[in-house]
Amino acid sequence: MTDAGEVLRQARGVLDGTHAVPAAQVSRVAAILARQALEELIVDRLAQLGAQVPGATMRSKLVCLRGLDDRVVAESATIAWDGLSRACHLHAYELPPMPEEVGYLIDMVEALLEPSRAAVPAAR
């Protein structure tokens, strides 16, 4: 849990320019970090629910989460993971994601870290 939080803080730091990352790579690096944090978070969450699925694909994990956890949490996690995955990879003809977009996804992951704020943030 703390690991996920720490990684997420780093992601935020990259996005805010506090780490020496080339400007063109800021969004992607932040997205990669945030996705790592999210993945750890999901594993932790499943573990809390008594569902250890260490080797399973991320898709299976998200499906399990939907089957076992709060629907809103599972949805947020799915959106965030999909968004961050898109941001991590360079797709043909696709521009790198906007920092604001990645920031928004980081917001979602942050909300997941804080179970009481598990809902999607309406605005920053």
Partner: peptide
């Protein structure tokens, strides 16, 4: 599809799949 994905994922233990699949 989600259910199939979990069932086919050999890494998901059977007891966990059993908890997830009926709901799906």
């Amino acid at each position: 599809d989600d259910a199939f994905a979990v069932a086919r994922d050999g890494q998901v233990p059977a007891d966990i799949a059993l908890r997830v699949l009926p709901g799906l």
